[in-house]
Computed example of a mutant assay.
Amino acid sequence: MITRAIVLFAHGARDPRWAEPFKRLQYRVQSRDPAIRVALGFLELMSPRLPELVDDLVPQGISHISIVPVFLGQGGHVMRDLPEIIEVLRQKYPDVEFRIATAVGEDESVLDAMADYCLRAAG
């Protein structure tokens, strides 16, 4: 039984095509570790929103949830909105361990990959 989940937390957009790279990321992460459930949740404009997603995961036996904000920086959504959502979820699910990573764009290896891409794109 899978008890751990990684939630890739993204902003959301009106155009469903916006989510395609996030879905590809979800697939890549999931394929690297099938023992962890990898899910994609959104702040707004798309489904599932983070609270709905957690409401779906917990009855499946998930008791450890790591939230990875797929944002370039630690802006207002990551610094303010996400902790507020997680606090409500902690109250609702006191037996679930929630961990929040820093925004993916804050990681040096991610910035290096982006720099490499920029140089390749420039020719």
Rank of each mutant, 00 (worst) to 15 (best):
L57I: 03
M46V: 03
S31N: 14
P51H: 09
V38N: 05
E20I: 11
S47R: 13
L50Y: 07
V38S: 04
L25Q: 06
R14W: 09
Q26W: 00
G12Q: 06
F42V: 02
V54N: 01
R24V: 10
L50T: 02
D55G: 15
R32Y: 09
R17S: 15
H11A: 06
A5S: 13
L50G: 03
L53M: 14
P48Y: 00
K23E: 15
R14F: 05
V58G: 08
D33F: 05
D33P: 00
V54Q: 02
D56L: 15
A5W: 05
R37H: 12
D56H: 15
D33Y: 07
P21L: 08
A39Y: 00
V58K: 09
A10E: 02
R32F: 11
G41S: 09
G41V: 00
L40M: 11
Y27C: 12
V7W: 06
P48T: 00
W18M: 05
I6V: 15
V38R: 00
F42T: 03
R37F: 13
A35V: 10
R24K: 14
F42N: 02
E52G: 14
V29C: 06
I36G: 01
P51N: 07
R17A: 13
R49T: 13
P21Y: 06
Q30P: 06
A19R: 13
L8K: 02
Q26I: 03
A35K: 09
H11N: 07
L25E: 05
R4L: 02
P59Q: 03
E52I: 03
L8C: 06
R37V: 08
A13E: 10
S47L: 08
H11V: 10
P48G: 00
G41Y: 00
S47A: 13
V29R: 04
R24A: 14
Q30H: 11
A13K: 12
P51W: 08
F22T: 07
E44Q: 14
D55E: 15
A5V: 04
V7R: 02
E52K: 10
E52M: 13
L53P: 02
R14I: 08
V29P: 01
R17C: 07
D15W: 02
R24D: 13
F22R: 06
Y27F: 12
W18I: 03
G12T: 06
A39I: 04
W18S: 03
F42R: 03
L50K: 07
L57N: 02
P59E: 05
L40Y: 01
R49H: 10
P59H: 04
A19E: 11
A19F: 02
R28F: 11
R14L: 10
M46P: 08
H11E: 09
P51V: 02
A5T: 00
R32L: 14
L25M: 15
G12P: 08
L53R: 00
L50I: 09
